[in-house]
Nucleic acid binder design. Structure first.
Length: 889
RNA sequence: GCCGGGAUGGCGGAAUUGGUAGACGCACGGGACUCAAAAUCCCGCGGUGGCAACACCAUGGGGGUUCGAUUCCCCCUCCCGGCACCA
């Protein structure tokens, strides 16, 4: 018996249990149909799902279910990005080991994901904090070490002197440690790096082979890699003891170089500081420097002479070498040739320290030649070389070529490509991560842990207290035997960056149970990921590292892929309004939108907002991403509890297209709920007709269109045309991933079915009427058949249930995707828009197959056209087939 | 500063990619049902003028191409995102 009311709570629960028992989402490798790997970025198990997760995974589930119905063999897996800092912070706060906190969170969030009805193959679940996963981080690390793709060198970290611990950038607030408030120092410690720069060229070039990625992500990656072509110039030291190397993209200005500048960390600076106390103090000050990158860009250009000189490679002039705070050690050679006339930074520096300025590039108008003064700027644009001896009179490229060639002849330079991208430092002085598999022996040195000793197990019972790394204090972990000599040795206590974990998890879903190998032939079956869905915040690092990792594994012979993700969808943020009040003391207090009521005028236009609790006004701070600090979050669980998963999914998919930001609206949620109630009530009201119609059909022909549709009455035929036109549009929109209009299409079909058996010509007892009724029932049956299927990926529970309730079949997700009956779209007569001079003036009806001349004739002789043409001559008639006629007079 | 993306009713958003601007939903107004309210259902709903038929205006602002522009081109304003002493 069908219940008259839509009651999502029990319906969804019951449906989920059935799906789980039937293993409906299980993915099995098979070759009888194309595969579709649909991947959503796995969550960090922070405690409970937030709205961003719900949106992300709803998009993934809609695509998965849609493709299943389209006949694809779909894999939709889920796992946990389970290592990382928050677990350690929770441990510090609550005294619970990170492992337990993490596992509890995973259990809770998994339950939440299930309650949303996502068709996830849980048999493939993985968590990066489990040894059977992270052992392969260690294993591949060792392979990369063997290949020279991992190396060890010193790196700079943020050091909290009170806690004696390393801080992540986000733990440094205004230059102080987040817990202790102590001034953070920069420290140099040995760290492991992955040589991502070796792949810079390929990572950049291959972006062109990713048509399924959003343009902005590709641009962001390209900027991050930051390729620039230039020339490396050697400036011999005055005493002949060596050469100072500098990289420049403006070799055409080399003849205008009047000094050289090096970074504070440059060896030359250290050398000069050895004999110069003042300089040593300055170098120290620069090294400490501002922590925030933004401050770096705004600070004054300052410097100090080293007292050392270099020789200009082409002119032979003697140039002073300065230490300057605007030169970065991390880019190029950590040294620049300074051309004040043609570089704004060098210009400001030269003005400040009264260094010579020499113009060697003339502007097109010749205006920028010799005149240089403190109140004008450097001329940084390209131009013609002047004052450059043998290189005079050349345009940019010619000048660069000539100068590079001259340098090369002297062995003091060559053309070179420089990248902004730096190698990836993966060492973290943290507990909750993958142990780096290395052992330090006093007699044998750095010894990699042999494969047979993998995994290096991370102890799970430690409780960090915020000071230092607990691994280092745990003898059972830190003490080890040297694999080579067997003597006493120390184990590496640093762990890996969690970006390592997420760089290859999508491969492991294909073979999570393989204990013998990192990947196997099932990876070849499922990869590449056909659709990847996640937040734009991962546009650079995660996606770049994953691409890098894939290429490394390819070069190690483990994969045959070049790229991991074919199509990428970056979903928009979930926003909500921000409400606040300023207290007397000027402090801002935020109020949750759920506790705020809008005040409207008599036209329903909002004029303000007030707090429900006290009725006093609150101010609106516009909309912003849902966050704890702004107190504008909506708990998905409360939403599911109140309305059910289908309503939550429907609202999220309907409110805006997936790539755009989504503004929360309680009224919108109500609207989505109302639609599902209306759908339920409609099915309830027509269930008997529909069931009877189902029974009258051969099961096999349930999806095929009968041949006798032409006996449908004209009004019914129009409705049927409308349904199929909507279906056509919905198919197009699903293909575009524009789900909001897919929902609107479903709504339109229900609206079109309003009063489905109503006739204009009511002739009771008339045989024609009875016959007509039969076709109307058939039309209703077909429309519901289509409606439920296009809505099923979005609101699976209710559609699954109604499908069965109406006797359409046992499992809607085993039904094929509905196809447009092109015959339904045909009409004898069509309506064209009639324009006069491009302005809409009316409509004309023409036979659908009318030739152009007939259409023109009908248009020109129509009463509307005659009225507007009156007395004027027709210059031209534009006919757009099937759309409009434009008469130009 | 450089790069990228936007701006459409009171609101979220449509417009088959150059062809009826405002689909669908929300909000609001009117009506039906009800003793009443909620729920539900029906009708209306960009602006201005008009009793009306209808006319004019309207896709951030200004110009252009075109029979026709939300869509293409140029300039400007504002908003969002990324990068940023990158030599």
């Amino acid at each position: 018996m069908m219940h008259p009311q839509y009651r999502p709570a029990e319906l969804e629960k019951q449906t989920q249990v059935e799906w789980e028992q039937a293993k409906a989402a299980r993915a099995i490798e098979r070759n009888d149909r194309p595969k579709y790997y649909c991947l959503s970025m796995f969550p960090y198990p922070s405690g409970k799902l937030h709205m961003g997760h719900v949106r992300n995974y709803t998009i993934g589930d809609v695509l998965s279910r849609y493709h299943r119905m389209k006949g694809y063999n779909v894999l939709q897996p889920m796992g946990w990005d389970a290592f990382g800092l928050p677990a350690e912070n929770a441990a510090i706060a609550n005294g619970v080991p990170p492992a337990r906190w993490t596992n509890d969170n995973i259990a809770y969030m998994k339950k939440q994901l299930k309650s949303l009805g996502f068709s996830i193959d849980w048999e493939r679940e993985l968590a990066t904090c489990r040894p059977d996963y992270y052992r392969w981080n260690q294993w591949l690390f060792l392979r990369m070490l063997e290949k020279g793709l991992v190396y060890k060198t010193t790196g700079v970290v943020n050091w909290d002197p009170v806690d004696q611990t390393v801080l992540a950038n986000e733990q440094v607030i205004d230059g102080r440690g987040w817990r202790t408030g102590a001034l953070v120092e920069k420290r140099e410690i040995p760290m492991f790096y992955m040589r991502i720069t070796a792949y810079a060229d390929e990572l950049l070039a291959a972006l062109d082979n990713l048509p399924g990625w959003p343009e902005r992500v590709k641009v962001m990656q390209a900027n991050w890699i930051g390729r620039s072509e230039g020339v490396e110039v050697g400036f011999p030291y005055e005493d002949g003891s060596g050469v100072l190397k500098a990289f420049t993209t403006r070799a055409d200005t080399l003849m205008g170089a009047t000094y050289c500048a090096v970074a504070a960390e440059h060896p030359l600076a250290a050398k000069a500081a050895g004999t110069n106390r003042q300089l040593a103090a300055f170098v120290e000050e620069c090294k400490r420097g501002p922590v925030m990158e933004a401050e770096l860009a705004t600070q004054d250009k300052r410097g100090m002479p080293t007292g050392l000189y270099v020789i200009h490679p082409l002119s032979g002039d003697k140039l002073p070498v300065w230490v300057a705070n605007y030169v970065l050690m991390g880019y190029g050679e950590g040294a620049v040739m300074a051309v004040p006339a043609h570089d704004q930074r060098d210009f400001e520096f030269a003005i400040r320290y009264r260094l010579p300025i020499k113009c060697v590039i003339a502007s097109k108008t010749g205006a920028y030649q010799d005149t240089v003064s403190p109140w004008r700027d450097a001329y940084a644009a390209h131009g013609m070389t002047v004052n450059s001896g043998p290189f005079d009179g050349l345009e940019f490229q010619a000048a660069v070529d000539a100068i590079a060639e001259a340098l090369e002849r002297k062995g003091l330079g060559r053309k070179r490509v420089q990248y902004r991208l730096r190698d990836w430092g993966i060492s973290r002085q943290r507990y909750w991560g993958t142990p780096i598999p290395l052992i330090y022996c006093d007699s044998c040195g750095d010894v990699p842990v042999p494969d047979r000793q993998l995994p290096v197990i991370l102890p799970e019972d430690l409780v960090p207290d915020g000071s230092g790394n607990p691994l280092a204090k745990t003898a059972a972990f830190a003490q080890a035997h040297c694999p080579t000599c067997g003597g006493k040795a120390r184990r590496e206590t640093d762990t890996m960056d969690t970006f390592v974990d997420s760089s290859w998890y999508y491969l492991r879903y294909a073979c999570p149970d393989n204990e013998q190998a990192m990947v196997d032939e099932r990876v070849a079956y499922w990869m590449r990921v056909d659709q990847y869905i996640g937040g734009i915040e991962h546009a650079i690092l995660h996606l770049l590292y994953s691409r890098f990792w894939t290429k490394v594994m390819r070069d190690l012979g483990l994969l045959t892929l070049d790229e991991p993700f074919t199509n990428l969808l970056t979903q928009g943020m979930v926003l909500n309004e921000i409400f606040f009040r300023k207290t007397d003391t000027g402090r801002i207090v935020y109020y949750n939108p759920g506790d705020v009521e809008l005040v409207t005028d008599e036209h329903g236009q909002r004029i303000g907002a007030k707090l429900k609790a006290d009725g006093h006004p609150v101010e609106s701070g516009g909309v912003g991403t849902m966050s704890k600090s702004k107190n504008n979050g909506i708990d998905p669980q409360a939403l599911i509890d109140q309305y059910g998963a289908d309503t939550a999914r429907l609202f999220i998919m309907f409110a805006s297209p997936p790539e755009q930001s989504l503004e929360w609206s309680d009224a919108g949620v109500e609207g989505a709920f109302r639609f599902l109630k209306r759908l339920w009530a409609f099915v309830y009201d027509h269930r008997e007709i529909l069931e009877r119609e189902s029974e009258s059909r051969e099961p096999r022909s349930a999806y095929a269109y009968p041949q006798d549709w032409d006996r449908l009455d004209p009004e019914g035929a129009a409705k049927r045309r409308e349904v199929h036109a909507i279906l056509k549009q919905v198919n197009f929109d699903f293909h575009k991933l524009q789900f909001n209009t897919c929902v609107s299409g479903a709504m339109k079909i229900l609206n079109a079915m309003h009063n489905p058996l109503g006739f204009q010509k009511v002739a009771t007892g008339d045989a024609a009427y009875v016959d007509g009724l039969r076709y109307r029932r058939q039309l209703l049956h077909e429309a519901m058949h289509i409606l439920l299927r296009i809505l099923a990926p979005i609101t699976p529970h209710v559609c699954f249930h109604l499908w069965r309730e109406l006797g359409f079949g046992d499992d809607i997700f085993a039904a094929p995707w509905p196809e447009v009956d092109v015959a339904a779209l045909l009409q004898d007569e069509i309506e064209l828009v009639l324009q006069i001079n491009g302005k809409l003036r009316g409509n004309i009806r023409v036979p659908s197959n009318a030739p152009r001349a007939v259409i023109e004739d009908l248009a020109l002789t129509s009463p509307t056209a005659l009225k507007y043409i009156a007395g004027q001559t027709v210059k031209k008639v534009v006919v757009v087939p099937g759309r409009l006629v434009n008469v130009v007079v």
